[in-house]
Amino acid sequence: MTAPLLDVRGLTVRFHSRRSSATAVDDVSFSLAAGEVLCIIGESGSGKSVTMRALMRLLPERRAEISGRIGLDGNDVLSLGDRALNALRGDTVSMVFQEPMTALDPVFTIGDQIAETVRRHRGASRAEAEARALELLKLVRIPSPERRLRAYPHELSGGLRQRAMIALALSCQPKLLLADEPTTALDATVQIQVLVLLKRLQAEIGMGIVFVTHDLGVAAQIADKVAVMYAGRIVEYGPARDVLLDPRHPYTIGMLSSTVRGQPRDRDIEAIPGSPPDLAALPPGCAFAPRCRFAVDACRAALPPVEEVGPGRSARCARLAAARPAAAAAAPA
């Protein structure tokens, strides 16, 4: 077996402020082969975006303490110097954000921004870089690309802007694309266009994608593997099909049953009670226990270990057997 493109072991991120410290990401491990799509699913405060930013060391160094190991394409990301890190960013890894308006520079045209990136990383000539920019806009299927090269970000619609952002991210043929809720701000009819495009580009280029989302539907659309995060920990991990159709962890089961998908109108949706915990004051043991209907004293006493629950899949729960029947009911047919 060849070494995976991305191998994360025991990643932990602690944020320190003057008054308190909080563990935003706690002992997260996963790996991604080249050409695979991993979706990190979680609600607000689950640590999914922090995990993603930690992969590129985009967190404020003073306040965020990162430990563990991040192996990326043979590099140990956490021990790289600034220069090597910058070479890695944009070259091997690049990132797509939720709101392209804040990630694109408003005073330069789309074409200039892409060409500039190509020149900086590839040392190409101006003409070559511009040709590459046009090629990229065609690749992300922006209509009338010659005209859009000269457009400023604010002149594009939301969907086109996100495509331009993807073109920028792909400009140096990264091996790994990090996508942080790139379709959340888009309308449904546009979201599906961008998802289909990303999936197709991923297959054509053969790059790996780590895709952060809160939407199970988006994950089902794009993921090969999923990692479900809750309060900074991965609670369930495995192939997308298995996890989404046959969830094992009570949280995943609850997420699926509370997602509105054609439930009968005269009955309550099976919601998860309560709200997500405060990361600065996590309970000992399983963080989901206060909201979990299967929780017993053991869950509250100690953190349950990660258990294998099938080929290539695992869950961090002490009550897997008890949750099993509910899982069958929650899964979409």
Partner: peptide, 16 residues
């Protein structure tokens, strides 16, 4: 009783 159900749901997650 649905009303009771909603009350307990909110209470469970209330930060102390």
């Amino acid at each position: 009783m649905p009303a009771d159900a909603t009350i307990t749901t909110a209470q469970a997650g209330a930060p102390a």
